[in-house]
């Protein structure tokens, strides 16, 4: 009874709803621990929304990075139809269910938008004898499994990329999983592993000091012009892998935002518009430039198509390696 009265009262007080407008705090669910790449992404979006007052309701950020991010997706999937749970992730949203027995399906979340693409590079130690990716691959072919690739997590984007490199070139590598890209970066700087495939942001500090150096980047074209980082070389001077003779045109990781399944269409539209505005601010441009990512706003069919293609490519690798969860 009381509930009905309250509902009736709510119906009077709220504006007749053509479009969704949040009336209570919005929770940003971050599928990584504090300080991780996804965490920085979500908190940047939060700070931009706060600064430009893009959402009237307060925004609360919670970290749910357990189980490589599965914790956050399972949590959000449990709030079917809830318009107040915005989940931040990467392509792990649709990859995790394929490699681990996690209790959610990619369809349990509604895609809202992709805001940026993070890049991957092949990095070697600063003192390494390899100056380009060709000699690196030749060396790997000459001695199978001698080259040690470090990376973040297992059966995740890093290892999938290493496996793809192996497939394309016919070389064999040994892959060593670490807890995160930062650890893989330090292991490379210390010369304990031979290479890693870190994102630009994870190795930038070591590159500045000349402790690591990039061989090539998995972008369709080179990075835009920017200030030199080390020894007169900047991001633009790094060749693309395809141009350096490693036939992988593009391998990137989208920075994605999701809602629980079953939300109304106007809710998706509302957040899509907010995120669109976020991606047009100077602060966003600044974040993307500082972390050497590529700003790319994708929603709707474009996002779905990207996702389908990404998934297809990755599933091939997973199938070949036998990593698909039974």
């Amino acid at each position: 009874m009381l509930k009905q009265i309250t509902l009736a009262l709510l119906a009077i007080t709220t504006v007749p709803a053509f479009a969704f407008e949040p009336t209570r705090p919005v929770e940003f669910v971050v599928t990584s621990g504090p300080g991780g790449g996804t965490d920085n992404f979500a908190r940047t979006v939060q700070s931009i929304i706060a600064k430009h007052k893009l959402i009237d309701a307060p925004v609360v950020v919670t970290n749910k990075g357990g189980g490589s991010g599965a914790e956050g997706f399972v949590y959000a999937a449990g709030y079917k139809g809830d318009p107040y749970k915005l989940t931040f992730g990467t392509n792990n949203e649709y990859l995790l269910p394929s490699v681990a027995a996690v209790p959610y399906a990619p369809e349990d979340l509604t895609p809202v938008a992709t805001l940026a693409l993070d890049e991957f590079l092949i990095w070697v130690n600063g003192q390494s004898k390899f100056g380009d990716v060709k000699s690196f691959v030749e060396a790997a072919k000459a001695k199978p499994k001698a080259i040690q690739f470090g990376g973040s997590q297992s059966k995740d984007t890093d290892q999938i990329l290493v496996s793809t490199i192996a497939e394309v070139t016919g070389a064999e590598f040994r892959y060593i999983p670490f807890k995160g890209g930062g650890e893989a970066g330090v292991q490379l700087a210390g010369g304990h592993i031979d290479a890693n495939v870190n994102n630009p942001n994870e190795n930038r500090g070591q590159w500045q000091a000349g402790m690591v150096k990039p061989l090539c980047v998995f972008r369709p074209d080179r990075f835009p012009q920017s200030a030199p980082v080390h020894d007169g070389k900047g991001w633009h001077d790094i060749p693309t892998c395809a141009e350096a003779g490693l036939a992988i045109d593009s391998y990137r990781m989208p920075r994605t935002v999701w809602l629980p399944a079953g939300v109304e269409e106007d809710v998706v539209v509302f957040y899509r518009d907010v995120l669109k505005k976020v991606s047009e601010t100077p602060e966003w441009a600044d974040y993307v430039a500082k972390t050497s990512q590529t700003s790319q706003f994708m929603t709707g069919d474009e996002f779905t198509a990207y996702q389908a293609k990404d998934r297809e490519t990755v599933l091939k690798v997973l199938k070949r390696e036998g990593w698909l969860v039974k």
Binding site: G67, S68, A100, A101, D156, P177, W323
Partner: peptide, 9 residues
């Protein structure tokens, strides 16, 4: 929980 090395639960 998640095992870092094998990537399985």
């Amino acid at each position: 929980g998640m095992d870092t090395i094998s990537g399985s639960l």
